[in-house]
């Protein structure tokens, strides 16, 4: 019987290792290892053996079954792998066919710019507040040290809605509101939004434009601090390589007053006005000007995405043609 066992095992092992498919292997599994399989059948003949040989043969048979079971398992894995490979080869697709797009919304380039500006300025410690578009004359002009009947008004032709209210010509109009609330320095405050001035519309001018205003009052604020903060801000917005330039300019609400430009790429981009808050304003706000000084800046927002995306016509922003918006 031992010979027979050896013969069956070697025959089965050969057959298993040569099984061409999972189905054939399963048949072999049943043929040899099944309930009525040939190895199982040998067990039934064990009764015919002398008593002293029974345990030995039993062990040999179990060992043979275990080896064959392992061989089946190994062959199963090999066949599965081969079959999977064949199947997946058959399933190959043309990866160059176009993808199926899910319709996607996008942020308006000005919304995107606004959120970039906020991210950078919040990082620099600015607290954003909101102002209104319809502003009191006193906030838009008086609070900002515009003398009555000054030629500066020529540059501020404005949209009036009644004798004392107009569409704000600069976001700086927020200052008076904030100062009236009586916050104690030090602080850094900012606002961003729409401004309006009578301008003929062309590719680079609009009666409606966007500004970001920032101001700070604290002990010892200097013009160099203003330059440092603006430089940090510009580097945050445009990259570490940019440089900030100051050039003297006149705005009634600052002294000294400067025009701010940033060197971005190979050109200067003029961004707006800045300076140290005029002592008349600080005094009116109730701050001791010997102790406290402040800076303020008001920068044009629209030019930033114009330069970034190469937009040559400012009017596109508020026309919001979908074919324009979907490019960003």
């Amino acid at each position: 019987m031992t010979e027979e066992l050896e013969a069956i095992e070697s025959e089965a092992t050969r057959a298993v290792n040569a099984a061409p498919s999972s189905e054939a292997l399963e048949k072999l599994n049943i043929e040899y290892l099944g309930r009525n399989g040939r190895l199982t059948a040998l067990l039934r003949g064990i009764g015919a053996l002398p008593n002293d040989q029974k345990p030995l043969f039993g062990q040999a048979l179990n060992a043979a079954k275990a080896r064959l079971t392992d061989a089946v398992a190994v062959r199963t894995e090999a066949l599965k792998g081969a079959e999977r490979a064949t199947r997946e080869q058959d399933e190959a697709i043309d990866v160059t066919l176009p993808g199926r797009a899910r319709p996607m919304g996008r942020l308006h380039p000005l919304s995107r710019t606004e959120s970039d500006i906020k991210r950078v300025m919040i990082g620099l410690g600015f607290e954003f507040v909101d102002g209104l578009n319809i502003e009191g004359y006193s906030y838009n002009f008086d609070w900002l040290n515009f003398p009555p009947d000054h030629p500066a008004f020529d540059e501020q032709a404005s949209f009036y809605v009644d004798d004392t209210h107009l569409l704000r010509t600069q976001t700086t109009a927020i200052q008076g509101h904030f100062f009236e609330a009586g916050r104690k320095p030090p602080f850094r405050v900012a606002t961003i939004g729409r401004c309006y001035r009578y301008e003929n519309m062309d590719a680079t001018h609009s009666h409606t434009f966007h500004q970001v205003d920032g101001f700070s009052v604290a002990e010892g604020i200097s013009l160099a601090d203003l330059k440092g903060v603006l430089a940090e801000m510009m580097r945050g917005l445009f990259g570490p390589e940019v440089t900030v330039r100051f050039r003297p300019d006149f705005f009634p609400f600052v002294e000294p007053g400067v025009e701010v430009a940033v060197r971005w790429g190979d050109r200067w981009l003029e961004l707006g006005g800045a300076g140290l808050i005029h002592p008349n304003i600080l005094r009116r706000a109730g701050y001791d000007t010997e102790r406290y000084t402040g800076f303020a800046f008001g920068l044009g927002v629209d030019r930033m995405p114009m330069r970034r995306y190469g937009i040559d016509d400012l009017r596109e922003f508020l026309i919001s043609d979908l074919r324009f918006l979907q490019q960003f």
Binding site: G105, R106, H108, Y196, I319
Partner: peptide, 8 residues
């Protein structure tokens, strides 16, 4: 799509 339009 996010849009912005004129107030005036």
């Amino acid at each position: 799509q996010d849009a912005l339009t004129h107030s005036l």
